[in-house]
């Protein structure tokens, strides 16, 4: 179970990265951001290695337990943030993304880590395709949500004329809104593909594209929510604060679909069901 060791190293590196980024948020000391980037980047590499090792050991993409799903999602979240950083000078977002990723891996760390075998029925190439698209889409929505939170803080500070302190360290409103827009379009595209491939896989496995199980219903609801937001943005020029609030609400729905359904409701997407 060397993958578990790698996973634990990841938790440590994310914790260090979180501390460094929070230090950067408080002190605006550029070295802190540098350290944060290094630790988070290092954590990401180790995390990828952990997932690959687990993939080899299990023989399928490691998303069959809540531990695996949380870990996989955290890895994609960090990866998409590191990618975003290449395009936008938004180092400070690390102070929001890193703690979130840390929270996810800590939660994953306390859950049972044994590998749950995948029923033969579900073994298919659709699994990695469906899950990867859906998860990357959700990770991108998480970034939109982070950008939205920072937007609301910056907007509040500027509107209330408290522009001398924290506001100096946050990105400009326009950059945050642009991230919101791009994350929204990309995330929506990915989620759409995720849902469609999920349906195709369901058809192969169970003989029906859509079975109205809670996960599917909530995914559809989330998809509709983002479709509305995208429409509002494109057709009636919602931007700034409204778009930021929507991105946060939308991600709330993502979280519920991702976690709430599994923990509170039942259906084929809930991991325990697979064991029966």
């Amino acid at each position: 179970m060397i993958n578990v060791l790698f996973f634990e190293i990841t938790v440590g590196l994310y914790a260090g990265g979180t501390l460094a980024y929070l230090g950067y948020l408080i002190t605006s000391y550029p070295k802190a951001a540098w350290v944060g980037r290094l630790l988070l980047g290092g954590g990401f590499i180790v995390h990828c290695a952990a997932l690959v090792l687990r993939y080899i050991e299990a023989g399928h993409v490691p998303v069959t337990s809540l531990h695996e799903s949380l870990s996989f999602f955290a890895c994609l979240l960090v990866g998409s943030f590191l990618l975003l950083r290449l395009y936008y000078a938004v180092e400070i977002m690390g102070a929001f993304v890193a703690p979130f990723a840390l929270l996810l891996v800590i939660w994953a760390a306390v859950l049972p880590k044994e590998i749950i075998p995948l029923p033969a029925l579900l073994k298919s190439w659709w699994l990695p395709i469906h899950v990867t698209f859906a998860f990357v889409g959700e990770a991108v929505f998480a970034l939109a949500c982070c950008a939205g939170v920072i937007y609301l803080i910056q907007e509040r500070l500027l509107k209330s004329k408290r522009a001398a302190g924290l506001s100096r360290r946050l990105p400009s409103l326009e950059v945050l809104d642009e991230i919101n827009y791009h994350a929204l379009t990309i995330g929506f595209l990915l989620l759409t593909i995720g849902i469609v491939t999920g349906a195709a896989w369901a058809e192969r496995a169970w003989g029906a594209y859509w079975r109205w199980d809670p996960k599917q219903n909530w995914s559809l609801a989330t998809w509709l929510l983002y479709a509305i937001l995208l429409h509002q943005r494109l057709a009636i020029n919602w931007r700034g604060k409204k778009a930021a609030v929507m991105a946060i609400v939308g991600f709330g729905s993502v979280l519920f679909t991702f976690l709430g359904v599994n923990l509170l409701l039942h259906g084929p997407h809930t991991y325990a069901e697979w064991l029966r």
């Binding site: 522009a163 946050l170 400009s172 409103l173 326009e174 950059v175």
Partner: peptide
């Protein structure tokens, strides 16, 4: 100059 600084925090 404050005005310029603020403009840069609204516009990218």
């Amino acid at each position: 100059f404050v005005a310029v600084e603020l403009a840069k925090r609204i516009f990218a």
